[in-house]
């Protein structure tokens, strides 16, 4: 298994060549009088891990919601691959190849782990509902394939043997991974993870870090990551975007962002920034 640093470097070399997969142009989102996102321009390059960081209330999750078209954006534009996303419904966005997870895990709690994965496969299954009733050959084949794939994913996320458990009865870490697994089942090109390490201890965070890198390599994905854990962000990211109060205040590779004065100011406040300067 590649160490995180190496993986980042390897991609770092090819970063300039990779095409833009997701682009938001002047994305603005207002809720009443509050501007949650203000003319945000973000380019996510294919194959990269792109982190979005910022203090609480900076508009990170709103950015995800806007990309998914869960909210109708106020102005600006979003393009994904060759498609304009604005005005689509979330299911069409998912069909275009974007999948996401949620900050507070949102599994389908009333059904089992494997069924959660199968729901994620919804788009992959092509048989019509009436074919299920007459139990057509295509439907049976579809279901069989889906079950096999779901079992593979279940193995991949380390939940083999727990497929028949109700999602709500899984442990916290398992729920996190199951949610990621469910997103993977939609066969996305772009995976958006919203604070995958929230509420985890340092050891679990390290595991999650390796897990994210493995996902990228195995499934050949592009990942957008909202994260508060700076250690993780610095180690896995190819590019980091910093949001504060809905404004993009910095962007670049982790080292660049780390030393950016605006970022330090946003995180530690003006006074801290001034103290930092002489040192």
């Amino acid at each position: 298994m590649t160490t995180p640093i190496k993986a980042a470097q390897r991609l770092g070399e090819t970063q300039e060549l990779a095409p833009v997969l997701l682009r938001t142009s002047d994305l603005t989102m207002r809720f009443g009088g509050l501007t949650a996102l203000d003319k945000v321009n973000v380019d996510v390059r294919r194959g990269s891990i792109h982190s979005v960081i910022g203090p609480n209330g900076a508009g990170k999750t709103t950015l995800f919601n806007c990309i998914m078209q869960a909210n109708r954006i106020s102005s600006g534009d979003i393009h994904f691959a060759s498609e304009r996303l604005v005005g689509l419904t979330p299911d069409k966005v998912a069909a275009a190849g974007i999948a996401r997870t949620y900050q507070n895990i949102r599994l389908f709690t009333g059904i089992t782990a494997i069924e959660n994965l199968l729901v994620g496969m919804h788009r992959q299954l092509k048989s019509h509902w009436w074919e299920a009733v007459i139990n057509s050959a295509r439907c049976r084949l579809d279901e069989k394939k889906a079950h096999e794939e779901a079992c593979e994913i279940l193995n991949f996320i380390g939940l083999s043997g727990r497929g028949d458990m109700l999602a709500r009865n899984l442990s916290y870490g398992d729920q996190r991974r199951l949610e990621i697994g469910r997103a993977l089942c939609t066969k996305p090109k772009l995976l958006m993870l919203d604070e995958p390490t929230a509420g985890m201890n340092p050891r679990e965070i390290t595991e999650m870090m390796h897990f994210i890198l493995r996902i990228r390599d195995v499934f050949n994905l592009t990942i957008v990551l909202i994260e508060h854990q700076m250690r993780l962000v610095m180690q896995v990211s190819d590019t980091v975007t910093v949001l504060d109060h809905g404004v993009k205040i910095a962007e670049g590779d982790p080292a660049h962002v780390k030393s950016h004065p605006a970022v330090i100011e946003a995180y530690l406040g003006r006074a801290a920034h001034r103290q930092e300067q002489p040192a």
């Binding site: 095409p19 833009v20 060759s82 498609e83 689509l88």
Partner: peptide, 19 residues
């Protein structure tokens, strides 16, 4: 640095207004 050339023009039109 940020070249737009990589984003292709729209491939096909979709229903922009939801059902």
């Amino acid at each position: 640095m940020m070249t737009a050339t990589n984003v292709l023009p729209e491939r096909r039109a979709r229903w922009r207004i939801s059902f």
